[in-house]
Design a protein around this nucleic acid. Sequence first.
DNA 1: AGAACACGTCCTACGCCCCA
DNA 2: TGGGGCGTAGGACGTGTTCT
Length: 222
Amino acid sequence: MATSTIGAKRKRQTPEEEKKRQEQDEVVTAAFALSHFMFLRDRIQAGKKKKIIKDDTEETLDLLLRWTSDPPKNLPEATTAVLGRCSKPIRKQLTMSDVKGDQNRLMLSKAQVDKNFMPLFEESDTLLGKEGTRVSVYGPDGKVHEMVFKMWNEKTPVLMSGWNTFVKEYKLSMYCDFLTVLMFRHKVTREICVAIDFTRHPVARQLSERISKIVFKGEDKD
DNA sequence: AGAACACGTCCTACGCCCCA
DNA sequence: TGGGGCGTAGGACGTGTTCT
């Protein structure tokens, strides 16, 4: 029941297509409501302890393994038109801090950034500097958003300055939205760019360490 | 001047690894 | 086997900047 956005093209829909789309929207809305309900229930069950109940179910693992084993989807034309040297994609489940309005940042896994993104950087790039690197972020629809990619304390890679707008524009939600983040060099300008797609899954909780490891770190295998 | 926003740092939870 | 140390990711919160 995952709904991906990459490659989605706007075109006039027949009444049947429109009805089908509405049905899909209703399913997604229901998944959202269920996610929110389960999140609140978990927080109540967790009580005073801040411990978060994580999703460690085989259903979720199976769902995500099928998602990550999918062949790469088509990028929007606006992105493929400028696609130069390209990194391996990083996948990530959105967390509370990623979508919190007052944070305006997307935290990425250092291990995956080091492995997948760093080979694209050159000495002239200012990633490790205090100001970070300005990057053009291509959304699922090919629209470009200007953001800053930097390392905090030389250990935490974050995407900021514009991330908040991105979250609002695509109505991203914690836990149920999963990002595919791809870094590449612009074919003409040679600047560092990022392409972000998101896929919505019926997942209501943060993934357990076990599932994260299998699904995300398993991708590191060459 | 106060509110809102953006950014940065610190704290905590958790997993992994090593050693007794 | 289990406990202590360490590293990492996520979340909380403080501070600086901009806006009204």
